[in-house]
Design a protein around this nucleic acid. Sequence first.
DNA 1: AACCCGGGGCG
DNA 2: CGCCCAGGGTT
Length: 374
Amino acid sequence: MPEFVLPAGWTSRTLAAVRRKLLAWFDAHRRDLPWRADRDPYRIWVSEVMLQQTTVAAVVPYFERFLASFPTVAALAAADEQAVLRHWEGLGYYRRARHLHRAAKDLAAAHGDALPDDPAVWAELPGVGPYILGAVMSQAFDRKLPIVEANSLRVLSRWFGYRGDPREGAGKKWVWKAAAAVLPTARVGDFNQALMELGALVCSPTAPACGTCPVAKWCEANRLGLQAQIPPATKAKKTVEVREVAVVIRDGAKVLLCRRGPDASRWANMWEVPHGEAVAGETVEAAVRRVARELTRLDVTSGPELVTIRHGVTRFAITMTCLEAIRKAGTYHSDFYAEGRWVDPHDLKDYPVSSPQRRLADELTRASRQLRLI
DNA sequence: AACCCGGGGCG
DNA sequence: CGCCCAGGGTT
């Protein structure tokens, strides 16, 4: 695939005209979003992290709450990590929050509350890749750095009629070159946001509104009628089935949670096992029974809760047999492991989790109450 | 290059 | 139910 070159017939004046057109459209149609109120690099940074793989509508309330609790980078740096993670519950991709917190500590220690106008500093921060670097630098400091994300990728490849896959290999290079080539020398941040805003509001993945697009008359995909083919559809991801088991029997000690790989017969890993090392090759059921027996000194013969997880979608097939076994022991109760922490079933009622998890939580809570375990 | 991470919205 | 979303890190 060729490197980025302007289409035949384009001059620097054409490019300048298109830039003006897009910026004017942005001025008229930009959404009023909370992180667009000013050019505070901290607010912009937080918004960009939240917006990773997450829709604008989903982010807005989280952004408001987060900024109310952690209004400055110093406030975030001083916060407890569990407090930060609680503000993230329901957003997903929790590593983003940990990286953000860690990076805030680094920045606050080195620069206080005055975030540096220095790409080299930002590029070293955990969780800051090429996109967030360009986004923060251009929006907060008007530095001339490009951004490429799902929207601008679609806009640019349609605009210039790129026929390869701009997400991989040579296509990735091409789209970053294109994003850099179209940048104006002023209002860089606005221009980057205009590309994304156009992708979000007009140049949508399916059925783009080319009739109202401010740059349609310079768009190769529009001219050739190839909007549906550019960019090419993403390859379907293989569905991997994983079986997980979560059990804890608390008597001062916690036992837990292993995960089986696709072969569904062996332990893939153990996440936290203060008690109950799994023997290699031991089945889930056998190990949990053995550990439960050791802790309760009762003969626990029934199996554990089984949790089936498919890619991206979580489905549960639950048996409450282990809970019943615990009830027989009389003095124990169960906990549930969710989003990286141990959660008491009682607290799961208000825990922000997806609906399948919610059903599991409700079931556990109900069962626990009936069994007077709490 | 392939894979992992999460949850919601939408057709 | 399957695809998509203001990506980055790890292997």
